[in-house]
């Protein structure tokens, strides 16, 4: 079973060389720490920055320079600043190659719910509805089951949707799964020491298992 850092580390392996990537809040933010040395990647923050760098040292902290999670950050050489309209312009024009975000639920046809629990949590969708509506590739980083022990990989989402038929891949503490265009979660990899049976038990939606399922490798 993977911890949050290991989920982020596994997702980092998905990042292609020379790509523009938007990272959501939570586990996705951690992905930036595990980019392989030989990979060139440019991070977009939807509040208006391309070329986001690491968190600043104390003396570098600038109230005018934050990421979409409102954290203070830095800019790398070659960074660019723009306004919110241009930021979502480049998102909808599909200039961003990969979006990595968290989810409360994902359905077997790739629907995602991550912004609202009616009567309990009303924080808003932020930029998530824009990102999932237009991203070329969407990877979800999340726990396989919720705090109540219920599967978050469902036949159909029960929570208000953020977007439809958009998630391509899911990485959880148990497994890596692809969402197939025709529907269904195809099991690609198991976390070290996790059995196919355990993944079956934790997955409520249609799970497709073909042949031997390899363990994830971290080298």
């Amino acid at each position: 079973m993977l911890d949050k850092e290991a989920i982020a580390k596994r997702i980092a392996q998905e990042i292609q060389n020379n790509s523009y990537v938007n990272l959501g809040i939570g586990i996705p933010t951690l992905v930036a720490n595990y980019i392989p040395k030989n990979i060139q990647v440019c991070f977009q923050s939807e509040n208006g920055l391309l070329g986001m760098g690491p968190f600043p040292r104390e003396i570098e902290v600038d109230a005018d320079l934050i990421n979409a999670g409102k954290q203070t950050i830095t800019m790398l050489p070659g960074a660019a600043i723009f306004d919110s309209a241009m930021s979502f312009g480049m998102i909808h024009a599909q200039k961003i190659d990969l979006t990595i975000l968290g989810a409360m639920e994902v359905s077997e046809n790739g629907d995602i719910a991550n912004w609202k629990i009616p009567g309990k949590m009303v924080k808003g969708m932020g930029g998530a509805m824009d990102l999932v509506a237009s991203a070329k590739n969407i990877i979800v980083a999340m726990q396989h089951v919720n705090k109540a022990g219920e599967s978050k990989l469902l036949q159909a989402c029960t929570l208000p949707l953020t977007g439809i038929r958009c998630v391509k891949k899911i990485v959880t503490e148990l497994a890596v799964l692809a969402v197939l265009p025709e529907g269904g979660f195809k099991l690609l990899e198991r976390a070290p020491g996790v059995s196919v049976e355990a993944i079956k038990k934790a997955t409520l939606g249609k799970l497709i298992i073909e042949g031997q399922i390899p363990e994830m490798s971290f080298d």
């Binding site: 690491p54 968190f55 600043p56 040292r57 104390e58 902290v61 109230a63 005018d64 934050i66 999670g69 409102k70 954290q71 203070t72 950050i73």
Partner: peptide, 10 residues
């Protein structure tokens, strides 16, 4: 004042 909501440093 330019208050910072989530000061995060390395």
């Amino acid at each position: 004042e330019k208050r910072i909501e989530k000061k995060t440093t390395s």
